[in-house]
Computed example of a mutant assay.
Amino acid sequence: MTSPRKDWNVLSHGSAILPSHGREHNLSLVLQTLADQGALSRADLARATGLTRVTVSELVAELLHRSHVIETGTQEGKRPGKPSTLVDLNRPGLRIIGVDLSGIIPFRAAIMDLDGVILQSFSSQGRGATGQDAADQLLELLDTALAQCQVPVLGIGIGSPGVVTDKGIVLSAEKFGWRDYDLRSAVEQATGISTHVLNDADCAILAEHTFGQGSGHMILLRLGRGVGCGVITHNTLVRGAGFAAGELGHVRLHAQDTAECSCGNIGCLETCISLPAIWKALSEGQPKNQLDQQVAAYLASAVAPLLSVLDIRNVIFTGPRDVVDQALAQALHEALALRSHTARASDFRLVLSEDPEHLVLRGSAVNVLFHELGIA
């Protein structure tokens, strides 16, 4: 079980354009209010949302029909007369399946509730698969998770390495040899369940933004198979013109770095400070404190311009606890302060994630909630 629900930061949805968009916006507003505040009467929902009672009653009726909300009992003691009926998100009756493809360990999946709490987790049997073998391994893992889920699944969320479009197409994921691979369609055709795919670092920052130490303006740095970066400004996930925002791992900082990268280029950042590179250096006898300084210098050189350009004061740093520890975080903070005036501001904070193991899984759930219910 993961930590209990807190007050959620809310991702930006943009403005309604058509009347149908306006109705969906209002449905999302009701759901978001219930997500934030818990069970409410229709009258309390009207007051909280600013909508009329008639509108709220119509919206709740539609959400009851969709099984997105349920009636949970009566509200006693507030006013004389008939007690009001409470409605809430269908927390007991809907589940989300999340999948994390980012780790060096085998693929992981989890059954989660609508608050992002992990109820049951699973791991694939193999590792190192590429191409169609990797896709088949993912589908087998999903079969296992779905077979154990006894209530309806709202959606499947997947966090994948590489560049992922808003349609769930993996434009490139060198670790799997995927290029222009329609992962979303492959999973939906196999399972019949609505599926949403997002870059793993973007999933991680959604988890921190919603459940953790995030804010409206933040960066998340993640050391894994590669070097991931997620960016949120004005409560909006930054994805970029080609959906490659935050792809720090394939930045080349120094001309003298010539190690060959899996992308086909040389000297990419991930050849120096990804987990495989760090573990290799440690196995060859490089002292941890010396390696921390080296990793911090490389990472800070890539990140400091982002802090200054975007005026970001909140940085979350994450990765396996045996590598991404307080010593490395302190080294990174100092390296950033040398390179960016923003990192020297009194309100600048760099903190370690409190739940690094589950960030991608829980962020994949946030992505499902956003797309299926309009809440985050």
Rank of each mutant, 00 (worst) to 15 (best):
residue 283 S to H: 15
residue 298 Y to M: 02
residue 230 G to N: 05
residue 299 L to G: 01
residue 221 L to N: 05
residue 224 G to E: 08
residue 293 Q to V: 07
residue 267 G to A: 13
residue 248 L to N: 04
residue 213 Q to E: 15
residue 304 A to S: 15
residue 215 S to K: 09
residue 231 V to T: 08
residue 243 F to M: 11
residue 231 V to D: 02
residue 301 S to P: 01
residue 216 G to F: 06
residue 238 V to E: 04
residue 262 S to E: 13
residue 244 A to M: 06
residue 306 L to M: 13
residue 241 A to W: 08
residue 254 H to N: 10
residue 247 E to K: 02
residue 263 C to R: 09
residue 294 Q to V: 09
residue 234 H to E: 12
residue 301 S to G: 12
residue 262 S to W: 04
residue 245 A to S: 15
residue 292 D to H: 10
residue 275 L to N: 10
residue 307 L to V: 08
residue 242 G to D: 13
residue 232 I to G: 03
residue 253 L to A: 07
residue 266 I to F: 11
residue 300 A to Y: 04
residue 266 I to P: 01
residue 232 I to Y: 02
residue 248 L to K: 05
residue 213 Q to V: 07
residue 283 S to M: 11
residue 214 G to P: 11
residue 269 L to V: 10
residue 244 A to Y: 10
residue 215 S to I: 14
residue 274 S to G: 10
residue 249 G to T: 01
residue 234 H to G: 06
residue 243 F to D: 07
residue 233 T to F: 03
residue 246 G to R: 03
residue 215 S to V: 11
residue 300 A to Q: 03
residue 237 L to M: 13
residue 226 G to M: 04
residue 274 S to N: 06
residue 260 E to S: 15
residue 291 L to E: 01
residue 306 L to C: 08
residue 251 V to G: 06
residue 233 T to C: 05
residue 256 Q to N: 13
residue 298 Y to E: 06
residue 260 E to G: 10
residue 221 L to H: 05
residue 264 G to Q: 13
residue 220 L to D: 01
residue 255 A to F: 11
residue 282 L to Y: 07
residue 213 Q to S: 14
residue 219 I to R: 03
residue 298 Y to C: 07
residue 236 T to S: 15
residue 215 S to W: 10
residue 213 Q to F: 12
residue 305 P to L: 12
residue 243 F to K: 01
residue 237 L to Q: 00
residue 265 N to C: 12
residue 219 I to N: 00
residue 280 K to I: 01
residue 238 V to A: 09
residue 295 V to F: 02
residue 287 P to G: 03
residue 273 I to D: 00
residue 299 L to V: 11
residue 278 I to Y: 09
residue 263 C to V: 10
residue 291 L to T: 02
residue 265 N to H: 15
residue 267 G to S: 12
residue 288 K to D: 07
residue 226 G to V: 00
residue 246 G to S: 14
residue 277 A to D: 12
residue 289 N to V: 14
residue 241 A to D: 09
residue 235 N to P: 00
residue 258 T to R: 15
residue 235 N to W: 06
residue 217 H to G: 06
residue 254 H to K: 14
residue 227 V to D: 05
residue 258 T to Q: 15
residue 277 A to R: 08
residue 285 G to D: 02
residue 228 G to R: 01
residue 268 C to L: 14
residue 243 F to R: 03
residue 300 A to E: 01
residue 234 H to P: 02
residue 265 N to Q: 15
residue 286 Q to S: 06
residue 264 G to A: 14
residue 307 L to C: 11
residue 218 M to P: 08
residue 304 A to P: 05
residue 263 C to I: 09
residue 265 N to L: 13
residue 263 C to K: 04
residue 264 G to S: 13
residue 256 Q to R: 14
residue 242 G to I: 07
residue 218 M to I: 08
residue 307 L to I: 05
residue 249 G to I: 00
residue 244 A to W: 05
residue 262 S to D: 13
residue 244 A to P: 03
residue 263 C to Y: 13
residue 219 I to T: 06
residue 307 L to D: 07
residue 224 G to C: 11
